[in-house]
Simulated assay, not measured.
Amino acid sequence: MIPEPTDVVVIGAGQAGLSAAYHLQRRGFDFAVLDAEDGPGGAWRHRWKSLRMATVNGISDLPGIPKPDVDPTEPSSQFLTRYFGGYEAALGLAVHRPVKVRAVRREDEDPAGRLRVETSDGVWSARALINATGTWSRPFWPIYPGRSSFRGRQLHVADYVSAAEFTGKHVIVVGGGISAVGLLDEISRVTSTSWFTRREPAWRDAPFDARAGHDAVALVEDRVRRGLPPQSVVSATGLIWTPALRAARERGVLDRQPMFTSIEPDGVRRADGSFLKADVILWATGFRAELEHLAPLHLRGPGGGIAMEGTQVAAEPRVHLVGYGPSSSTIGANRAGRAAVAAIAALPGMAPAAETVTWG
């Protein structure tokens, strides 16, 4: 198959991918955006309907075009799918979808050569690549003793729909992040729950200030610079006591238990040896970066991660990861898109056409 040539391929059309596309367009690059989803919205298309704009973490404007007025009661999946779709239309981005990227390879041994992007809908040949595939498609399921023996239902937050389906069942929620405590609050309103984590989350009485946010991002940046798997920014900033979570604490919902030692057919064996009967185990255990298609490039190092210099893969400067590690927040994704395009423009022989201004 003859590859379709372009300057840059962007994989993923979520917040990070759209930000990168905006800056590529402004600088006059020829580029293609490939997205595995059936329509706009990225991972937000799959968020549970009860996650409304009033309770979702702050969503930054995409570059150049601010969000429309927000109805706090509207599901975030609905609002952000509409916003992202309108953004694509306003910029005239002809996103190729649904397209699944199967593999990215070097076309030859020339470090300034081209990259071959093999997909479910043809092949592209690019001078540089911006990977913005996020994490939603790779939920992390811990390996736990007895997990396969459990006769009840097990699901990951990626599969969660609503609390109503658990009415009358005892639900165990595993995890110490925002999704875990938010879903504990929601599910506990219709049925009984228990909360298990490896360690007590760090709680904050007020939103973190700029210094705390900067320090948290710096910790994650240090890990990826050293080639270690990234941790979430939230793991460094801690969880904020919102009014809803304070109320949940008063109801006893946030009485955290240390992680159980094993799973049995009808429940779990607690750390103190006692048995807890359960009907459902909800794993709120996070996600991993979707990077399998980059495996032919052999980017991972001995530490298990990919050594980074900003958004650039240290060992392969033609490849940028945005929405990865320190840029996994919506603010970070916007900044990473801009930084990746600036770095690509600085590569030898990558000077684009005269810069064009489309928005903002």
Results as ranks from 00 to 15, higher is better:
1 M>K: 04
11 I>C: 06
16 A>K: 05
24 L>M: 06
30 D>E: 15
33 V>K: 00
34 L>M: 09
35 D>E: 14
46 H>G: 00
52 R>V: 15
56 V>W: 02
59 I>Q: 07
66 P>N: 05
78 Q>D: 08
83 Y>P: 05
89 A>Y: 04
90 A>Q: 14
93 L>G: 00
94 A>E: 15
102 R>Y: 12
106 R>E: 12
108 D>C: 06
108 D>Q: 02
109 E>N: 12
123 V>N: 05
136 W>Y: 13
140 F>T: 11
141 W>D: 02
145 P>T: 09
152 G>H: 03
173 V>G: 01
175 G>Q: 05
176 G>T: 11
177 G>V: 02
178 I>N: 11
180 A>K: 00
183 L>Y: 00
184 L>E: 05
187 I>D: 01
198 R>P: 04
201 P>M: 11
207 P>M: 04
213 G>M: 10
216 A>K: 00
218 A>L: 13
223 R>A: 13
227 G>D: 08
229 P>V: 05
232 S>P: 10
244 A>I: 15
248 A>P: 13
250 E>L: 12
251 R>A: 14
269 R>V: 14
273 G>L: 06
275 F>H: 14
286 G>S: 05
287 F>G: 01
288 R>V: 14
288 R>Y: 10
290 E>M: 08
291 L>M: 06
294 L>S: 01
304 G>R: 07
305 G>P: 01
320 H>D: 12
322 V>P: 00
326 P>I: 05
326 P>S: 02
328 S>R: 03
330 T>Q: 04
339 A>H: 12
340 A>H: 09
343 A>M: 13
346 A>I: 10
353 A>Y: 13
356 T>P: 01
